[in-house]
Simulated assay, not measured.
Amino acid sequence: MNIANIAPHVYRGLCNASAALALDADRFVVADDEVSVLKVYRFDTPGLPLPGEDIDLHVFLGGKEEADLEGSALVGDTIYWIGSHGADGDGNPAPARRVLFATRRGGPGERLLVPLGRPCRRLLDDLAGTPVQQRYDLLGAASKAPKDPGGLSIEGLADTPEGHLLIGLRNPAPAEGALLLVLENPAEVVDGKPARFGPHLSVDLGGQGIRSIERHGDGYFIVAGPPGKGKEFAVYRWSGLPEERPRKLDVPQLSGLNPEALFFDPDGLLHILSDDGKDQPGGVKCKHLPADQRQFRRIALALG
């Protein structure tokens, strides 16, 4: 498969692009893992987000702590969003990060996206007794710093043809492959019911973890990266079949980026967003910049 570069673009208003989805052929929505706000941008107009379309999630999610949003997935007309579910960078408890929630398209007189149902904060608890919890002790992993060996960090979310959700782990990344949890009842979960998990999957990414995963047609595309620190990234195409290894793609455009969000638009272009929180112009830290000067990058790839 050949992959051709279409164009790099710079967008402003946030730095730490961590999850995104196309809303239609013109617009896409982005989450930042440092602030609990969703912003909407236009593909054809790099720059600031669309005015009046920001969604401040603090009231809906409760509290002022960051949700560390890391993944999104579209199932029917519902967009699901997931937090990292890990501890903070020092290994201290960070309950605000243990969240899965949903949004819906807004109707007349509403914003483009409107929160749906109620946030779920019991995913890890509902793993109790499952084979993946018994084997990897993900609840124990959640008490460690997310980038430490054996820590917990969720960074990928994708739909399945059955309407389930694949939850991709950056860390831990066992020798047998990066982990994917299979959530079978996401609509019930955001309606307050317990989570039901199917058998987990392992994907051989050469020792790397999952930074983003997206279904496209009959298969999946995955951005892989180190489970801890490091900037060695790769893009894989995977059939979705557990017995088949994913195929690494040649994507030289990743050089210099910190890819954290991968998604497709309705025309089939593959978009990858770079979390540029540590790569702002002049080396200034993101939090020290005015909002309209904070930036992230997008590359678009045509699959030929």
Rank of each mutant, 00 (worst) to 15 (best):
213 I>G: 03
72 S>L: 06
100 L>I: 14
34 E>P: 07
60 F>G: 12
276 D>S: 15
139 L>W: 07
121 R>H: 15
19 A>E: 11
268 G>E: 08
285 K>A: 12
252 P>M: 01
266 P>V: 11
111 R>M: 00
114 V>L: 01
279 D>L: 12
242 P>Y: 01
123 L>D: 14
236 Y>C: 07
199 P>C: 05
223 V>F: 04
245 R>N: 04
17 A>M: 09
261 A>N: 10
172 P>F: 10
72 S>T: 14
25 A>P: 01
165 L>D: 07
40 V>D: 01
143 S>E: 14
43 F>Y: 15
254 L>A: 03
277 G>H: 06
226 P>M: 00
53 E>R: 03
172 P>I: 12
91 G>H: 10
14 L>H: 01
165 L>N: 08
140 G>F: 08
40 V>Y: 01
292 D>E: 13
233 F>K: 00
8 P>K: 06
58 H>V: 12
187 A>Q: 14
120 C>P: 04
142 A>L: 09
66 E>Y: 12
61 L>P: 05
249 L>M: 12
185 N>I: 14
158 A>V: 13
250 D>V: 14
197 F>K: 01
301 L>V: 02
304 G>C: 03
163 G>V: 09
34 E>N: 12
119 P>Q: 02
279 D>G: 00
89 G>K: 10
179 L>T: 13
31 A>S: 13
90 D>F: 06
89 G>S: 03
146 P>M: 00
210 I>C: 04
95 P>I: 11
163 G>M: 05
244 E>A: 10
58 H>A: 14
143 S>R: 15
275 D>C: 13
225 G>E: 01
110 E>W: 00
242 P>D: 14
268 G>M: 08
60 F>C: 10
161 P>I: 05
63 G>Y: 05
92 N>R: 11
228 G>D: 12
232 E>C: 00
170 R>N: 08
97 R>L: 12
19 A>T: 01
297 R>Q: 11
123 L>F: 07
195 A>D: 10
285 K>F: 05
